[in-house]
Simulated scan of single mutants.
Amino acid sequence: MTRRTLRTFSAAVAATAAIALALTGCSSNSAGGGGEAGGESAGAVRMGTQPWLGYGQWYVAEDQGYFADNTVDVKLSSFNADADVNAALAANKLDMANVGAQAALQFMEQGVDVSIVLLLDSATEADAILSSEKIGSVKELKCKSVAFEKGATSEILLAEALDDNGMSFDDVKVIESSADKVTPMVLAGRVDAGVTYEPYVSEAIAADKGVRALVTAGDYPGLITDVLVVRNDFLDKHPDEVRSVIQSWDDAVAFTAEDPAKGREIIAKGVGSNVADLESAFDGVHYYTLAENRELLTGEYLTETLPALVTVAKRIGLIEGDVDAKRAIRSEYLS
Rank of each mutant, 00 (worst) to 15 (best):
N165L: 02
V72I: 14
F67P: 02
T8K: 15
A325N: 08
H286W: 03
T24Q: 14
A18E: 15
L309Y: 07
V211T: 09
D73G: 14
T24G: 11
S131W: 06
D121L: 03
E149S: 14
L162D: 02
R3H: 05
L235F: 09
A147R: 04
L158K: 04
L214V: 03
A22G: 14
E304S: 07
T305K: 10
A213I: 01
S132D: 06
A207P: 09
D121H: 10
Y197V: 13
T216D: 04
A159D: 03
D121N: 14
G43H: 09
K326Y: 04
G25D: 11
F107R: 03
G272W: 01
G317S: 04
A103M: 12
F148Q: 10
Y220I: 06
N274D: 15
A276V: 01
I19Y: 06
A15R: 15
D322I: 15
R212H: 15
E62R: 05
N29F: 06
P184D: 07
A12N: 12
F255V: 14
K75H: 13
A97H: 11
T5F: 12
E133R: 15
L297C: 10
A188S: 15
G111P: 00
P239F: 07
L76R: 04
Y288W: 06
A88P: 13
G43I: 07
A193G: 06
L306V: 05
G48D: 12
G54W: 02
G270N: 09
A83L: 15
R243N: 06
L297T: 09
G321W: 06
A193H: 04
G32P: 10
I266M: 03
G284L: 07
L228V: 15
A18F: 12
P199G: 10
